[in-house]
Computed example of a mutant assay.
Amino acid sequence: MSPAKRLRARMAETGLVHIMAAHSPLSAILAEEAGFDGLWASGFELSALYGVADMSVISMTQHLDMLRAIAGRTTLPIVADIDTGYGNAINVIHAIREYERAGASAVVIEDKTFPKVTSLVAGGRQQLLRIEEFRGKIAAAVATRQDPDFLVIARTEALIAGVGEAEALHRANAYVDAGADMILIHSKEKNPLEIESFSRAWNELVPLVIVPNAYPDLDAERVKALGNIRMMIYGNYGIRAAATAMQETFRRIMADGGVQNVHKDILAVEEVFRLQRMDEIKAAEARFLR
């Protein structure tokens, strides 16, 4: 069974899948060990890893390199964050071919103009693409995929752009007509009321995806009660957790004038060796280095 088919099966089995953002093979390994259903190959996290803004600065090649590396070290399905699809429908055709070959099980394409600005930044430029043009991108993605289980997820930024629920519903319906398998509805409100309202108004069979970064109080129990959300993506928690730990550790080392205190509070080197599968390397050495 392909990872894409397993992702669909998991959604059908549980009703809701939990997808953790990853920016490296190591973060992917940790997410798999924690029990997540899949991985979000996050553009935001990769941008942050490079120390640049999430504004279409990172190239498709850089993102694909990350995704291939992750796919080589995990068995989890990967949902690829491909922003606006790197251009128009012709660029989307190229992107879908490359991402499917690289090991993605799904892509999320958003209906903003290129280059995009990250959705949750205060005062960010949030310009929406014409519906007709974005419908072409979704149709191109669906026509290009080779695996019929590969998910094409259309993300509408209508609520982010402040144009209201009616426009969000209008756009989402148009994207379903173009062949989208799921609709990602995004919000920057600090509470989940906008998302819950959209979910209650959504009467299509196509299920919804959410990214509860701005409104963390919306937990799985409340999501399941809504009945039509099938995927929760935890969009930036990996890089934020990593940065939190590094900030604290680095500051303590400077304050203490050494590592004499901090060393006992961080991961043992032996645990890093385990995550690197050092036992497999040692076994291979014993077998082949004669």
Results as ranks from 00 to 15, higher is better:
S2F: 10
R6M: 08
L7W: 12
R8F: 09
A9N: 15
T14C: 03
I19S: 04
A31V: 06
L39A: 07
M60D: 13
R68L: 02
A71S: 13
A71K: 08
L76G: 01
V79E: 00
G87C: 12
A89W: 06
I90F: 13
H94V: 06
Y99E: 05
Y99G: 04
A106E: 02
V107N: 09
D111G: 05
P115C: 01
V121H: 01
G124M: 02
I131M: 02
E133T: 00
A141Y: 04
T144G: 03
L151R: 06
E157H: 09
A161C: 04
G162M: 08
G162C: 08
A174N: 06
V176K: 09
A178L: 12
I183L: 10
E196N: 06
R200W: 02
N203M: 09
I210M: 05
N213G: 08
Y215P: 05
E221G: 07
N228Y: 11
M232H: 07
I233Q: 01
N236L: 14
I239K: 07
I239A: 10
A245V: 13
Q247C: 06
T249I: 11
M254Y: 07
G257Q: 04
N261C: 04
V262D: 03
A268W: 04
A268N: 05
V269H: 07
V272D: 01
L275S: 01
E280F: 09
K282Q: 11
L289P: 00
